[in-house]
Nucleic acid binder design. Structure first.
Lengths: 225, 225
DNA sequence: ACCTGAACACCGTTCAAGT
DNA sequence: ACCTGAACACCGTTCAAGT
């Protein structure tokens, strides 16, 4: 990836020496690109103003010329990724299928970008940035026959379930997870022991597990359509 | 709260001066008590080894005589609170009611202790410490007629929904939340605008909203019992 | 064995200074 | 206007020392 440096710097013993960066290397766009990449690749713990600046090849404080604080960057990342979410085209199947496809798209976004997940868990979207998804979901719920309060409740429940499921799946994907079920006294916890393989499978599955639960929730909310 | 100090220290200008604490002031129990209190009262961001030690009236490093790291304390807090969770007595109503009551108890625990919520979101329980809740829920799901795989999937979906809903409710309870719905172009987002009051109400409700969604999910999972 | 204070390697952010 | 480096007030944790 590292082609010959345009600055012609010799690969000396103190590579940290950075001659002053060109006047307009940075802008909000470039900062956000690097932020998303860093967040997705290294996780929220490694998302640091110092390493972010390092990836950008610039001094730490240069970033503060474009964002007032780390929180402002985090907010902007969330807005960008939610805006990027590709919502499905309106399906032919009717309102129930549309709700299902919209939720699947939201789940996929969260599963693909663990960073957004973390950001959503820390501060659930409460308006402007989530508008398109919310609008179309509410429209479909109303189209499915729910009255106003029922549609609002159904939308909330669907979003809560989607975030919870994505969070679960993301954590299961991390290093030390998965090898459990042992160490439980079989006489005290017979069901847990008997169903250990199925539980591990359900936890490992992610998408398939989510979609089964989603169908159940939709059935409960909309009827057995 | 501050009664006269047993050490007879004069209320001088440097209250930070702490004469050596008695030999056995600390133990794991006392550390965990203070940790839970601090976590619940001040939130995860304020949960610091330094302030924890301060609450205990002891030097920061004293805590490390009983726990190897901050993570170990966090794990122990999670285990303790999950163990403390009061599960409901077996109801007369049958398996569906038992599942519902177990989930409500789990939601109440998470809602009452935002700290556990944060800890669960960061690392969902994967075995030993969650055993009793899992065992009884799985037993009831099998009793409701689900086969092994169906029970495991249902348990997973219920837990995911419960964590997601509690997370949502907890964040809604924080300072700047609630006053939204304005600023949206009504022609682009007609449903969102029309349902704004209902959405705010659903988000604000917490428990009632959770229980409606739970009933829907149970209906979808178990049939219209 | 248990508690302490100084110190180390981090972190986000302020500030005065460079161009 | 934009970028830089030193500095400040934090953080978790190591270490040598006290009792």
């Amino acid at each position: 990836m590292t082609t010959s440096s345009p600055t012609g710097r010799t690969a000396g013993d103190r590579p940290r020496v950075r001659s002053r960066a060109p006047r307009n290397t940075l802008n909000r766009e470039r900062v956000l690109d690097a932020a998303v990449a860093l967040l997705d690749r290294a996780g929220p713990d490694a998302f640091t103003m110092r390493t972010l600046a390092e990836r950008l090849g610039v001094a730490t404080m240069a970033v503060y010329s474009h964002f007032a604080s780390k929180d402002e960057i985090v907010d902007a990342v969330r807005v960008r990724l939610l805006a990027e979410a590709k919502l499905p085209a309106r399906p032919a199947g009717g309102p129930r299928e549309e709700v299902r496809d919209l939720c699947r798209a939201a789940y996929r976004l969260l599963a693909d970008h663990p960073s957004v997940l973390h950001l959503m868990a820390a501060r659930p979207p409460d308006g402007d940035e989530f508008t398109l998804f919310a609008e179309r979901t509410l429209e479909a719920l109303l189209g499915a026959g729910l009255e106003r309060e029922g549609a609002a409740r159904a939308y909330t429940a669907l979003t809560q379930y989607t975030v919870g499921a994505a969070l679960w799946a993301a954590r299961r994907r991390e290093p030390g997870a998965g090898t459990r079920g042992s160490g439980l006294p079989a006489d005290r916890y017979p069901c847990l022991n008997a169903l250990a393989p199925e539980l591990v499978a359900a936890a490992r599955e992610g998408t398939a597990q989510y979609e089964r639960g989603l169908d159940a929730l939709l059935t409960g909310l909309l009827g057995a359509g």
